[in-house]
């Protein structure tokens, strides 16, 4: 029984490590998509960014959301016409369903028309975010 117990313990550590590595390689990466158009009223706001919007989907129970908000806010502040909006999904559940959010934070990159052009699950990698945002600004349509 002791041998089996040792094997179970080793297997658990192995499985948890693989899960963690999988998560680490996928989180913070950007996917380029061509999604639906988000309107300001969907978010309870007046207007989106004139050139682009970083739409951060958060919940109050999310350790990575505040640092993500600081990163997105800083990147938006560097670029005229780019706005960072943070939405609490616990107050707008329909948004979570509509975009099938399974991870917080999830950041949607919206173009000038409010169309979803990119998606980042988890805390974005700063260089990934800057690259995707600049690409979006260079190819508006």
């Amino acid at each position: 029984m002791v041998v089996i117990a040792a094997l179970v313990v080793a297997a658990l550590v192995l499985v948890a490590s693989v899960l963690g590595l999988l998560w680490r390689t996928t989180t913070g990466r950007a996917r380029r998509v061509r999604g639906p158009v988000v309107r300001p009223e969907d978010l309870g706001t007046d207007a989106l960014g004139a050139r682009a919007t970083l739409l951060q989907l958060s919940t109050p129970m999310c350790t990575q959301c505040p640092p993500t908000a600081r990163l997105l806010g800083a990147e938006a502040a560097l670029r005229p016409g780019v706005v960072h909006l943070e939405v609490d999904l616990s107050e707008r559940i329909a948004l979570a369903d509509r975009f099938q959010v399974l991870q917080t934070p999830t950041t949607l990159l919206l173009d000038a028309d409010g169309r979803v052009r990119g998606r980042i699950g988890g805390r974005p990698r700063p260089e990934t975010l800057a690259r995707e945002l600049d690409l979006l600004l260079e190819s508006p349509a």
Binding site: S17, M61, T63, Q64, S90, D97, T104
Partner: peptide, 24 residues
Amino acid sequence: VFDFCLGCELYLLLVRAGLLGRRR
């Protein structure tokens, strides 16, 4: 080890299941 917050993702799932948060 990985700074992964399982509770955070579970919270989101509970919100989506309508058990937490406000439906609008």
